[in-house]
């Protein structure tokens, strides 16, 4: 084997878009392949878990893991990769903050399984069969991973060194990260490898944002024809840009769609959803309680809107239904 840096790529609960974004490096990928040895990439190359287990600890220079962690298999794999890698990079919104799969944290596991295997209108399952984690057949045992009760961001399972944000990350960010890795110019551990300033800084519509924004009602993006040159918030469309890290080149806004927050908050914010909620609510153009409620009702799904990519990484993390908690341990006064 060459002594080129070894890079691993792995996916957990994700859509594959992050893998796609690696391929989106286009010709640049050749430079990357030239500079490194990719020693593990299940999507593209035929390596097995046993190959990884056989590697020396910390022998992988860096592993990019995308996707949230929902199953025991994902968890085992990320722990294994953590042991084998010198640097772990959480790649993409799901690994960074929980991502779209993280929205499942609005529901209990039982609710999800019941819907998916019994109640969904497209399901025919009179026996109410659910997948089992182990099944004996013809003398051998087949196993399935355990479906955890909670979706987790990567750093809620293992120690993470860096984060590359985005759904999916842009090739430019990936390229910059790889370059930093190869040249040994990575910032301090824990850094999100994207600008620490909100998207508005680079938004092409910045100038059109009024200095006296007062929102009289919110519009959902599909329900209006957005003016392509005016700040989307000024048009009453919830844009997460002010609360979201920049570095994406404002791709969604350039496509006349609002920012939905995939790059996560800046380092100064603990809970991205709470912050945009605070800002938008304060800008509501009403003082009377009934009017306020009426304007706010034009945001039909606050959690899905403000926590689209970050629910597992948020302060509350997960549904806190009274029924699922029987409570009470020793620490109470």
């Amino acid at each position: 084997m060459s002594d080129k840096p070894k890079i691993g790529l792995y996916w957990c609960a994700s859509c594959g878009g992050c893998e796609e974004s690696v391929v989106d490096l286009a010709e640049d990928i050749l430079d990357v392949v030239e500079a490194v040895d990719i020693i593990f990439w299940p999507v593209a190359m035929d390596f097995k878990r046993a190959d990884v287990e056989a590697m020396d600890d910390r022998s992988i220079t860096a592993t990019l893991i995308n996707g949230a962690v929902r199953t025991s298999e994902q968890e085992e794999m990320v722990r294994l990769l953590r042991r084998k890698s010198a640097v772990i990079i959480a790649y993409g919104s799901c690994a960074h903050l929980g991502g779209i799969p993280g929205m499942a944290n609005q529901f209990d596991r039982e609710q999800i399984l019941r819907y998916v295997y019994e109640d969904a209108p497209t399901v025919v399952n009179d026996e109410k069969t659910r997948p089992a984690t182990a099944h004996r057949f013809n003398g051998s045992e087949a196993t399935l991973p355990v479906f955890h009760a909670t979706v987790r961001a990567l750093d809620q399972v293992i120690d993470v060194d860096y984060y590359i944000p985005g759904c999916a990350p842009t090739p430019a960010l990936l390229k910059a990260a790889v370059e930093a890795l190869l040249t040994g110019t990575l910032p301090p551990k824990g850094t999100v490898l994207a600008p620490d300033i909100a998207l508005c800084d680079e938004c092409p519509r910045k100038e059109s944002k009024p200095e006296d924004l007062r929102i009289e009602r919110f519009h959902r993006p599909h329900a209006v024809m957005a003016d392509p040159d005016t700040c989307l918030l000024a048009q009453g469309i919830v844009c997460m840009g002010p609360a979201t890290r920049g570095g994406c080149e404002a791709l969604c806004v350039k496509g006349n769609m609002p920012c939905t927050g995939c790059f996560g908050p800046t380092s100064r914010v603990r809970d991205q959803g709470a912050k945009i909620l605070s800002s938008l609510a304060a800008s509501v153009a009403a003082d009377e309680e009934a009017d306020i409620i009426s304007i706010l009702s034009t945001i039909p799904d606050p959690i899905g809107t403000f926590y689209r990519y970050g629910l597992p990484g948020s302060l509350l993390r997960k549904l806190l239904s009274q029924s699922s908690w029987t409570g009470g341990t020793s620490h109470h006064a």
Partner: peptide
């Protein structure tokens, strides 16, 4: 002058979010 109105507006949206997260 009007800080309490901002608090009121935030309260109502946050309240909906908390209820959505299962908090009474």
């Amino acid at each position: 002058a009007e800080g309490n109105y901002k608090a009121l507006r935030r309260f109502h949206l946050l309240r909906r979010m908390l209820i959505g997260m299962g908090i009474d």
